[in-house]
Design a protein around this nucleic acid. Sequence first.
DNA 1: CTGAAAGCGCTTACAG
DNA 2: CTGAAAGCGCTTACAG
Lengths: 338, 338
Amino acid sequence: MARRNANGRAAVTISHVAEASGVSRATVSRVVNGNASVKPEIAERVRSEIARLGYEPSPVAQSLSLGRTSTVGMVVPDLGNPTFQSILHGVNQAAASAGYRVLVADSGESDVDEPAIVEDLRRRTDAVIVCSPRMSAESLNAVIPRVVPAVVVNRDEPVPAARVVVDYAAGIVALGRHLVDLGHRRILHLDGPPGSNAQAARAVGLATLAHTYPDLVVLREPCGATIAAGEAAFERARASGATAVIGFNDLVALGLMGRAAEHGWRVPDDVSIAGFDDIPFAHLSRPGLTTVHVALESVGEAAWGALSHQFAEAVGADFRSFTPVLVVRGSTGPALPG
Amino acid sequence: MARRNANGRAAVTISHVAEASGVSRATVSRVVNGNASVKPEIAERVRSEIARLGYEPSPVAQSLSLGRTSTVGMVVPDLGNPTFQSILHGVNQAAASAGYRVLVADSGESDVDEPAIVEDLRRRTDAVIVCSPRMSAESLNAVIPRVVPAVVVNRDEPVPAARVVVDYAAGIVALGRHLVDLGHRRILHLDGPPGSNAQAARAVGLATLAHTYPDLVVLREPCGATIAAGEAAFERARASGATAVIGFNDLVALGLMGRAAEHGWRVPDDVSIAGFDDIPFAHLSRPGLTTVHVALESVGEAAWGALSHQFAEAVGADFRSFTPVLVVRGSTGPALPG
DNA sequence: CTGAAAGCGCTTACAG
DNA sequence: CTGAAAGCGCTTACAG
C-alpha cells in the first residue's frame, strides 16, 4: 500500500524522484546520502527534482533497510514524577545533539508489565534506558540481556548492562553529618515507598550514620514520597522527640514544614527539617529548605553517554555514580541545648 | 543485513518460524495476527514454535508493510517546563491505553527549527501533537497541512487542524473579578515572555477587565516566567503602588512572595498576590497562593482524543477549550481602605 | 484453509 | 560513475 498522508495524497518516494530524474533509485539514494560519488551534473539534476517534488526519505524504510532506527527508548514508572522528567530532559538533550530521538514509555508504576514494555520498546529502537526503581532484581536480570544495548538508571545491584546511579546513601550521610555538627543527637527520617531503590539506599546511609556516631539516635517512620504524606506525618514527627527531621524528599519535607508552621512548631528553632533532591521550590519556602542537590539532568546525559559508548564499541557494562551535594539553607539550625 | 541484537545473535524472524513449523510465512503471519482462519492443529504448532524460538514481530517491518507505526509524535519547546511535562503525561496515558507510543521531540525553544522537527517527527509516526507557543502563525499554517493528522495545542488563531486550548483570558478575568470584589482598584500584572501565546491571551483578558471595570487601573510590567523573574520584579512591584499583583504564572508569584516576605511586605495585608497554573507548590507557601487551576493532563488527553478521532473518520478540525478555575487561598485579601 | 508472489521504501554489494 | 538485483521483515490480495 502506497504511503499516503492524511490528505489522501500519496507520499513521494525514491522511485518518483528516480523516474523524474531519469536515473535509478540507487543513484538517488547515493545523492541523498552523499556517500558514493555521483557525476556532478546528474547529482544536480536529482537534487533539483528532490526539491521540486518535496521528497524526504522514509525513516521507517531506512530503519528496516539499515537495521537501525536512530531512536532510543526510555522506560519510566511515572512521567508525572519530576525526577524522571528531569532525567528524560537530560537524555533528550544529549540524544538530540547526536541526531537521535527518544521514545518514552510510562509503565504506570506497574512493575509486572515493565519487562514486556522494555522489550517492546527495544524492538522499536536501537537501545533502551531503563528507570525502574520497583522492578525486581530477577526481572531486571532476565530482561536486560535481551535488550542490550541498555543502561539501567538508579539500581544499586549489579546488572548485566551499563549503570548510572545517584549515591543516595552518601547524600544522607552528608546531611546527617551536617545535623550532628549542629548538635543534633536524635534524628527522625521519614521513609519513602518501601521496596524502592532510593529508600533502600537511604536505609544504608542511615545505618552508616548510626554506626559512625554511636551517641546518635536514628529513628524512622514510614511516610511516603508526596507533599500529602509529609503533611500526614506531622503528629508522629512531633511526638518522636527528634530535634531534626529528614524527609524522604523535598516534597515530604515541605509538606511537613507547612503543617509545622500551622501548628506553631518553629523551624529551625524548635525543629530542624531537611529534604532531598533540591527541587526548584526548596529555596522558596520560609525558611529555605536545607536539602541535598541531585544533578538529575546530568544523570540523563550520562545515561545517553553510556549508550553511545556502547554504540561505538561493543564493550559491556560501565558505571557512573553521581554524588549529591549538601545545600544548607535556613531550615536547619543548632539543636536546643538539653 | 540480518537484524541482530547487540549480543551479535541474529534476531529470529518470521521466516525462521515458518521453516521450523513447516508452513509459509503467510500462515505464520495469520496466526500471529489472528485475523484469517488457520487450521487449529497448524496454528498450535506455529504457536509452539513461536514460543520456543522466542519470536516477536518486528515493529519496524510491520510499520513499513502496514503504513502505520502505532506511534504519535509530540513536539514541545522545552521538556523541562512542568506545563509541557503535564500535557505529555496526559497524552502518554491516553495513547498508551489505545496501544500507541509517543515519541517526544524537544525543540529547545528554537522556533526556527520547529517546522523541520515537526515534519521529521511526523514521518516517523502516524500523527503529531504540536505545542509551539512561539512558532509564528505563518510557519504553523505552512507546516500543519503537510503533517495531518495533527493537533495543535494552545494556539488561539485558527489553524488547519484540530486544536485544543486553555482559555487563559477567561482565567485572568476570573482572577481579576475576584480581586475587584475584594476592593482592589489598582492591579499589576507581571507579564510573561513577549510573543508567547499565553502572554497574548493574558493581555486580552486584562483588556477585558479594564473595559468591564472602568474604575480599575490595570498596570503591566515586563517580567518573565521563572521564579528568578518574580524575585527580580519585587522592587518594581512595590513601587507600582498596586494593591494586588498577578504573576504570569505561579513561579513568578512565588518568587515575588519570597522577596516580599524578606522585605516585610506582608501578604495579603499589604499586598495581595496571585499566580496562574496551580502547580503543586501553590498550596505550600505561607499564605497559600491564590491562583487559577489548569487541567493540563486533561489537555493532553483531549489532544490524543482529537487525534484518535481523526484516525477513525477523516474529518478535519475540531476544537476543545478548557476553562481554568479560580482557586482562592490566603495570598489574596481585601484591599486596604484608602 | 494455505501458499506463491508482489509490495511497503529504502540500501548496498556486485558487475559493468 | 551507474544500474539491476537482492535484501531488510513483514502483510495481503489472489489463486487454488
